[in-house]
């Protein structure tokens, strides 16, 4: 059972792509790899107003992630709280994880030569903080949700 979710209130999202840069700067990433992404469909007219909604995507932290078993060094792991993360010490940058992922979520970090992906900023979570994208979301449209079993 996954414990967390990042939810986008698309009513408040203004497609400013702040989350993407908040994430990248927090992880020290250069241009290239991108760990979360805002996208939108082409505009269409709704009752006279051209409209579109923004969507947010990062790693889905699958219940049964395909990237974990294919990792030759067991660098890709799933925590008991559901977070799928890369142990940077063990990663050799072979990118088998990216090839196995239906959405090619894991990214190659050219600065380290290793894979990197959204890990809900678990180091921040452990300090009682929220993921970088949520903490700094320009319009507070992103929410970090702790899932509770009922």
């Amino acid at each position: 059972m996954n414990s967390y979710l990042i939810y986008l209130n698309s009513k408040r999202c203004i497609g400013c792509h702040g989350c993407e840069v908040h994430c990248k700067t927090n992880k020290g990433l250069p241009p290239g790899p991108i760990l979360c992404e805002i996208s939108h469909e082409p505009m269409r007219s709704v009752r006279g107003v051209p409209k579109t909604e923004f969507q947010f995507r990062s790693c889905y932290h699958c219940e049964d992630p395909q990237c974990v078993p294919v990792c030759p060094t067991s660098a890709m792991q799933k925590r008991t709280d559901g977070i799928v993360f890369v142990d940077q010490e063990k990663c050799i940058g072979c990118m088998a994880c990216q090839n196995s992922c239906p959405w090619s979520i894991p990214q190659f970090n050219p600065l380290t030569g290793k894979a990197i992906k959204c890990d809900y900023c678990y180091e921040r979570l452990e300090r009682g903080l929220k993921p970088a994208c949520v903490t700094k979301c320009t319009t507070h449209a992103l929410k970090f949700v702790r899932l509770v079993e009922v």
């Binding site: 792509h17 702040g18 840069v21 908040h22 903490t135 700094k136 320009t138 319009t139 507070h140």
Partner: peptide, 10 residues
């Protein structure tokens, strides 16, 4: 409340 835009982080 922490909010910052893309330029701000850049």
């Amino acid at each position: 409340d922490g909010a910052l835009c893309a330029k701000g982080s850049a």
